[in-house]
């Protein structure tokens, strides 16, 4: 059994949110596509030589270069007289940390590329180590919650803001909990020429320590709390895709082992950040333009 783009038999963990995101993106793009995958869970679970789960042209080179390898693909593709959709896809480690130079380079150069970050908020493939996508207070194997330090000490980095600072035509956030919104954004991005970036929230049952059946629950819940805003920035115009109900953060943190140690004062701090963040977002939506035009 399989879809048009990816077969069953891959070895992603039971309940993997990242492979749901990968499949949703690729199914939305259709078969006229070339995929360039960063090293990570989505590479290792799908392509054990001499077999592959993919049914579309697919390349993996290294961890930190999916975007720059994809820039070579798209320029080669155009020289061959084709107009294939080229997508560079990787996790928060591959795209936000080690691959951020490559990502920045392709956005600045304006290649006609889809850039997709499937964010599960840590280096899951190597055993749940902290990345710049790991949220504050989340415990990972390199930011464990101890008697003194309550997990990660820094806030999560905004790759969308980094992207928009390049003046690219389209940036959007999505969550696998809202597939219609995700697919619509993928399709809209596909129709836009130039670099476009999608930052997709993809929960990880193993890395976050929750029951595998709850992947979609957390993918929805984080959006409802306001901690993961869904928006798109098209030619600098920010549009909020969905207003959160500001559900209590406890509903999101509960059931995740990575937040088991979290205290009311931490939740209060995150909650204030969410409020302030939404104020900013709404201000920017009203102002209309969020495009960095001058250095």
């Amino acid at each position: 059994m399989s879809s048009e783009v990816i077969s069953s038999g891959h070895s992603a963990c039971a309940g993997c949110g990242e492979i749901i995101g990968e499949r949703m993106v690729l199914e939305a793009l259709g078969k006229d596509v070339i995929v360039c995958q960063a090293t990570g869970c989505m590479e290792i679970t799908t392509t054990p030589y001499p077999r592959t789960a993919f049914k579309v042209p697919w390349l993996h080179v290294t961890f930190e270069n999916a975007a720059s390898a994809a820039s070579g693909i798209v320029e080669a593709d155009r020289k061959l007289g084709r107009n294939t959709t080229v997508v560079a896809i990787g996790g928060d480690g591959g795209m936000m940390d080690i691959g951020v130079r490559a990502l920045s380079g392709v956005m600045e150069r304006g290649h006609d590329l889809m850039l997709v970050v499937t964010d599960n908020e840590a280096y899951m493939n190597t055993g749940i180590q902290r990345s710049s996508g790991t949220p504050k207070y989340a415990a990972t194997t390199t930011t464990p919650a101890g008697s003194v330090v309550p997990g990660k000490r820094e806030w999560k980095k905004s790759i969308s803001r980094i992207a928009i600072a390049h003046g690219i035509p389209y940036v959007a956030t999505a969550s696998i909990g809202f597939p219609e919104d995700l697919v619509a954004k993928v399709k809209k991005a596909q129709g836009i020429k130039g670099p476009k970036l999608l930052h997709i929230y993809t929960p990880c049952p193993v890395g976050w320590g929750y029951d595998s059946s709850k992947t979609v629950y957390y993918a929805k819940k984080i959006v409802e709390t306001g901690l993961w805003p869904l928006y798109e920035i098209e030619n600098g115009k920010l549009t909020i895709s969905q207003r959160p109900t500001f559900a209590p953060l406890e509903e999101y943190f509960t059931g995740q082992k990575r937040y088991k140690h979290i205290k009311p004062e931490h939740i209060k701090e995150v909650s204030e950040r969410v409020k302030a963040g939404w104020k900013e977002l709404e201000k920017q939506e009203k102002a209309g333009v969020d495009l960095m035009l001058l250095p």
Partner: peptide, 8 residues
């Protein structure tokens, strides 16, 4: 379609 860069 082909897969390039599989792991082994």
């Amino acid at each position: 379609p082909q897969t390039q860069g599989a792991w082994a």
